[in-house]
Each structure stands twice: as C-alpha cells, then as structure tokens.
Design a protein around this nucleic acid. Structure first.
Lengths: 123, 123
DNA sequence: TATAGTGTAATAGTAAAATATAACACTAGG
DNA sequence: CCTAGTGTTATATTTTACTATTACACTATA
C-alpha cells in the first residue's frame, strides 16, 4: 500500500478501511482479514494496524470478537452516517483551503466544475 | 499559530506563508520577518521555520539574502503559477477522496454546491 | 570599526510513530 | 483435549520531526 509520509500510517489505514466499508468492498457484518493478514496486505506492523482498528472499534464501525475476528457493523445507519461525515470533512477542508487562497464561493464552485470537465477530456 | 498534529509543522508553516504571499498579505519583493521573529510568531523553533523557508527558497518563491533577510520573489508569474498549483492540488485531492467514497462527478459538484449554500445560511 | 540584526548550520536532547518480536487470552474444529 | 487461528498487549529499538542552544557568516549603519 502506498503511504503519504506526511500523515501517520495508522491514520491512513483507518481511512483506507473506511473507504472499503463505504464503497461496499466490505459489506455490513462481513469479517475483516485477520490483523496479521491486514498487516501483510498494507505492509505495516500488526501494532500499527491494531491502532487503526482500535479507533474504528471505538467509533462503533468495527466490532471486535476476541478469538473470532473483526467484523463490520451491521448497523447500516452508522455506515451512512460515517460516509456523510467523511464527505463533509473533505468539503470543509477544501473550502477552507481555497477560501484561504482568496477564492470566492462562486470561484470555488466554478473551479470544481472546470476541474471535473477538464478531467473528463483527458481520459 | 494552530497546528494540525497529523501534518509536520514545517509543512504547515510553508503553506501558511504561501497563503500570505498569494493573498497579498506579503507583497512581491517584500521582506519577510526575520527567521527568529517568524519562529516567535508561529510559536515554533528557528530550525523548523528555516526548514520551511528552505523549501520555499528551493521553489524560487523566496529569495534569501544573507545578512539582510528573506524576500518574496518579484517575479509575479511565479506567484500566480504557485496559486494555480495549490488550487489544482486541492481540487485533485478532494476529487480523488470523494470519488473514492463512490460519489459521481455530478454528486461531487452538487455536494460542493450544497455545502456552500448551507454554509451561507449558518452565518 | 564596532555592533546589532540578519541567514545558516551544527549539536544534543525529547517525543511520537512505527517496527520487530514475543507473549497472553479466547474460539472453533478436529 | 489439543491445536490452529484469532484479537490483545507489552517490551525494546529505530526513525523522524521538533526543540533548545550555540556558534558562525554576512550586512548595514551608527
């Protein structure tokens, strides 16, 4: 797995798994790979994976069953809530950043639109 | 200055000064505060500030004159190029993230629009 | 020419993340 | 009951960013 060296690995692992849950790669109730297997998958240490998992367990997205494995929550409301939370975080961040670069609300919207259009052409 | 503990301080300082240059708080050719003063301003160490400055110097945005101070480049083309580069980076990042959350191009655009609208109301 | 202000760099120490490794606790299945 | 597979935890070590401190190099000016 590719890591951004400006962000803690455990944090990136957490985000990675969250994405898999939200996109349905990991279904509600599904068992995750074992922590040892996950460590191999993402090329990180077991303790680092465990730290990521611990936060997801604390957030109620993952349920841990000792001796059996880690499972995605069956409460789909939690998952949709997670998605909106992540989306909002992203929007707030980019808005704040572009605003700090002196772009008006209108300019922000247009720049997003243009980025998407231009991106469609280069494909 | 407020720091995000998930991102290196020197990196945040660099971004902070870039923003000041782009918004015109720091004009082309203008002298920056001394490294020691900057360290006080942003509540960080001189070496950390210096690391941020070094990268900006390497990027050609800041010119360093030993014994005199650090100065914003007079080449305004470099500054406008920097702005577009920073904006594009932000757009690419948020697009990639939202796309990874399974949002279509259309949904991304709408969500940005809604975020801005809703934000206007809460003010 | 002396001095204050500037950038630059080196050293040593601290803190946090990540690693390697091992051990412990529990579960399921043969 | 034993064993393999699971989560959990602990220890020691390494790495990196950051800090504190000091020293050096250069510039302007009183």
């Amino acid at each position: 797995m590719h890591f951004d060296d400006k962000i803690p690995i455990y944090y990136q692992i957490k985000n990675h798994i969250y994405h898999e849950i939200i996109t349905g790669t990991l279904q509600p109730g599904e068992k995750l790979p074992s922590v040892r297997q996950l460590a191999v998958d993402v090329t990180a240490n077991v303790n680092t994976v465990q730290r990521a998992l611990s936060e997801m367990i604390a957030a109620g997205i993952i349920e841990s069953k000792r001796g059996r494995g880690n499972f995605v929550t069956m409460e789909t409301t939690k998952i949709t809530a997670l998605k909106t939370q992540l989306v909002t975080t992203q929007l707030a961040h980019v808005y704040q950043q572009l605003h700090a670069l002196n772009l008006s609300d209108e300019e922000i919207l247009v720049s997003v639109q243009q980025y998407i259009e231009q991106r469609g052409q280069n494909k």
